[in-house]
Every structure is written in structure tokens, then in C-alpha cells.
């Protein structure tokens, strides 16, 4: 892991200590904020391989590295001591999709999304956060419009996760009480890694957000891994609420 944060102790209540993780690299405690998944795979977010819209799985022997996505980073999502890692990660995946596909670069408000999903009281699970993004949308900074995630999947296997990334989806990968945006796959000496973009750095240190992480360290059962492939900008009036 490679975590670093300008930790604002005054903002972080004591009860948020459970969201902090000891950085293996430098022994510093970093704010993460991921809760265990709310429900089993496929209950809140559709399961990959379960619909006709999913891409065929790619055999492991044919896996290949995907292009570097660094040139498409245009908006830093620094979580700034809030236990909002999975909200920052979902916003990141969507923002990378927008940039890569030539759509309007719309800055998302991860903080408002965090308040909506948690009430501003703590961490969040990635399946419930993405379900919120698919039903209520993600708030756009300085706007009443929202971005609705229209195609996303909960992935039951690492093979499915890697296949979806190679097929062009952006993603969220979870591990160690932490969620990070995943923008690609990297094969090094036969070992698959994911290209991760953290939300722990900003300013001059922002480049440290980019790192490789072993695919097999993603914790599917405990936290989950999600693929995001399509989004739409909608005004609040166009949104259809979920059934209670």
C-alpha cells in the first residue's frame, strides 16, 4: 500500500478511528472509510455475467495490459480526512469515463455524495454507494443536475473483474478497509495488477495516488469490486426514485 494524507485531526471524530488503516510503507495511519458490503453479490448492483449486456470473459492466458490512463486525469478527488474512499472512487471512475470518451468533463461532488449515503456520520459500503449512484445519481459540483450511473456491475470473481476492465469499464476495487478507483490492468511477469488511483494525495503529491495493486489482493467477499461502464447526465426532475 502507498497511503499518505494530510490528516486533519480536528475534523475527524474519535468514532472514525475504525476507518483508519496503518500504512505498510511508512507506518502512518491513513483515513480510509470502507464498510463491509451490505449484501451478497448482485443484490443491490446487478451481477456481472448475469445479463445480456455483459462482455464475454477473457481467458486468463489472453489477459493483457490496458493503456495508461494518467493523461485522462483532470480532477483530483482528495478525501481530506473523511471516511469517503468508496464515494471518491466511484466519482473517479465516472470522471475517467467522461474524459476518455470525450464527454463534457463534469466535476462530481464526492462530499455531497458521502453526506447523502452516510448522513455525514461515517464510512460507506461500495455496493450501497453504487446502488445510490444508479438510482439517485451523483451530485455535480455547483449544479442541481446529477450524473446517473446507468450501466454498472457487482463482480463475483477476479476473472470477471479483469475481463470487464479489459473490455473498457472503469472500476472500484476494495481492500483493507479502503476503496480505490481502478482504471486499468497491468500484467508484469505474468502477475496481474490493477492500475489504482487513490484519493489520499493532492497538490504536489497528487501523483502518488497512482499505483499498481495486486489483483488477488482485492477482497471481493468482504468489500466487493464494481465495474462502471455507462453514465448519463440527468436533471433531478428526470430521476426515478427507487422503491422503498
Amino acid at each position: 500500500m502507498s497511503y499518505y494524507i494530510d490528516f486533519d485531526g480536528l475534523r475527524v471524530p474519535d468514532e472514525w478511528d475504525e476507518y483508519r488503516v496503518l500504512d505498510e510503507d511508512d507506518g502512518v495511519w491513513r483515513m480510509c472509510g470502507l464498510l463491509p458490503r451490505e449484501l451478497p453479490v448482485g443484490r443491490l448492483v446487478p451481477e456481472w455475467f448475469e445479463t445480456n449486456e455483459t462482455c464475454p470473459p477473457i481467458p486468463r492466458a489472453q489477459w493483457q495490459s490496458t493503456p495508461d490512463m494518467r493523461p485522462y486525469e483532470w480532477h483530483n478527488r482528495y478525501q481530506n480526512g473523511y471516511p469517503a474512499c468508496c464515494l471518491c472512487s466511484i466519482c473517479g471512475a465516472v470522471e475517467f469515463l467522461l474524459a476518455r470518451d470525450g464527454r463534457e468533463k463534469t466535476p462530481l461532488d464526492w462530499h455531497r455524495l458521502w453526506v447523502e449515503t452516510t448522513g455525514g456520520r461515517g464510512g460507506c459500503a461500495v455496493d450501497s454507494a453504487l446502488w445510490h449512484a444508479m438510482t439517485q445519481g451523483i451530485p455535480i459540483k455547483n449544479s442541481t443536475d446529477r450524473i446517473l450511473v446507468t450501466e454498472a456491475w457487482d463482480v463475483p470473481t477476479l476473472e470477471g473483474f479483469a475481463s470487464g476492465i479489459q473490455a473498457g469499464a472503469m472500476a472500484v476495487g476494495c481492500h483493507d478497509v479502503h476503496a480505490e478507483c481502478v482504471v486499468g490492468l497491468e500484467i508484469q511477469n505474468g502477475t496481474p495488477y490493477v492500475q489504482m488511483v487513490n484519493s489520499h494525495y493532492h497538490g504536489e503529491k497528487a501523483d502518488r495516488n497512482w499505483h499498481l495493486f495486486r489483483l488477488d489482493r482485492i477482497e471481493l467477499r468482504a468489500y466487493g469490486a464494481m465495474l462502471i461502464r455507462e453514465v448519463q447526465v440527468r436533471t433531478v426532475g428526470q430521476l426515478i426514485d427507487a422503491k422503498g
Binding site: 449486456e53 493483457q64 490496458t66 493503456p67 485522462y72 476518455r100 450501466e151 473498457g168 461502464r229
Partner: peptide
């Protein structure tokens, strides 16, 4: 069609030169 996504299409989507 996004359901037909594959590594070759992903490479074109992410390529900077033509853009």
C-alpha cells in the same frame, strides 16, 4: 455497443494520438 467491448476497442478508446 458497449456489451461488445474487448481489449482492441479499449486500446482505441484510450489512445491519445487520434484524439
Amino acid at each position: 455497443e458497449s456489451a461488445d467491448g474487448n481489449p482492441a476497442m479499449t486500446a482505441i478508446k484510450a489512445d491519445l494520438a487520434w484524439k
